[in-house]
């Protein structure tokens, strides 16, 4: 019985599971009545969102509004940091609740990858080892050809191949900040996720590197569903299809408005959204 489960999960540690990243296409996500508590303190209250497959959804809002906490709750990343918040509610990935008692957070994270604020390539690994990290760390066995193909495909998709193809054996830390971030994206792609979460992926980068990442996001959405936290409203308006505006004024962080990006930025229905995007506070 367990065996059938393993076969169902293409990301599992069996060798057959790892092939060149043939994206199965992005999947939808749905957030239902999500609440997050730090002890008895309510940090996020009742967020409800439907995230469209193969679209980019941006989470914006002033710092402290809970957008980073929220995105970490979407693949249960919050559970592995000390002092983690307690979460209530449901998050559905393609109709399955990732908080169901039977759900394995490790498998959830294989399907819902994450890219972080600061690029964090593994310093002890080379560029190609970094790309293969998700597979190797789960002791998936690959032959040379498979490995080389995954590395090339993933780096191509992350728009990094041309820049690093001659130095795949070098340390990931030798790259520039923007390249490191694209390496982290390649690493995420290599395990075939369905959704990629990005927590302010450009906040540590210069404008040119930022632009490259934005272009990359645009390309990636054909194959993945992308959710991005950003404090940069231009970025949200340029790179996203949907925008969610969060606020933590006078209480816990909550969703103020959620809709197509164009609508949020041109004719928001809420006064507070308008105030924020026109720079009147935040």
């Amino acid at each position: 019985m367990d065996n059938t489960q393993i076969k169902e999960a293409p990301q599992d540690a069996s060798a057959e599971g790892y092939n060149t990243p043939v994206a199965t296409g992005g999947k939808s996500m749905e957030i239902r009545n999500l609440k997050a508590y730090y002890g008895s303190y309510l940090a996020i209250s009742d967020v409800n969102m439907e995230i469209q497959p193969n679209k980019v959804t941006a989470l914006i809002g002033p710092s402290g509004c809970g957008k980073s906490t929220l995105i970490r709750c979407l693949n249960r990343m919050h559970e592995v940091t000390p002092g983690a918040p307690r979460v209530e509610g449901e998050v559905l990935l393609d109709g399955q609740n990732i908080y169901a008692p039977s759900a394995d957070p490790v498998k959830v994270r294989r399907l819902i990858g994450m890219v972080f604020q600061k690029p964090n390539p593994f310093p002890t690994m080379s560029i190609s080892e970094n790309v293969l990290a998700g597979i190797k760390l789960n002791s998936g066995r690959l032959n040379h050809a498979q490995a080389a193909e995954i590395v090339e495909q993933s780096l191509h998709r992350a728009a990094l191949w041309d820049e690093v193809k001659d130095k795949l054996g070098k340390s990931g830390a030798s790259l520039s900040g923007g390249q490191q971030q694209r390496l982290c994206i390649a690493r995420t792609i290599a395990v075939n996720p369905e959704v990629i979460l990005m927590d302010e992926p450009c906040s540590a980068l210069d404008p040119i590197a930022t632009l490259k990442i934005e272009e990359l996001i645009e390309e990636l959405k054909a194959q993945y569903t992308i959710i991005i936290v950003t404090h940069n409203m231009q970025q949200a308006s340029r790179a996203s299809d949907f925008t969610a505006f969060m606020l933590a004024q006078d209480g816990p962080g909550h969703l103020v408005e959620f809709g197509p990006t164009q609508q949020i930025f041109t004719r928001p229905t809420q006064k507070r959204t308008e105030d924020y995007i026109t720079g009147r506070f935040g």
Partner: peptide
């Protein structure tokens, strides 16, 4: 919280579920 996933009981698996716990993963951590 980090240790929680270790303490949870393996729930019975209903139907074919891509994200449910399989013994191979939880067992290693435990």
């Amino acid at each position: 919280m980090a240790a929680n996933n270790l303490d949870m009981k393996i729930a019975p698996i209903e139907g074919i579920d891509r994200i449910s716990r399989s013994r191979s993963l939880v067992g290693g951590d435990r």
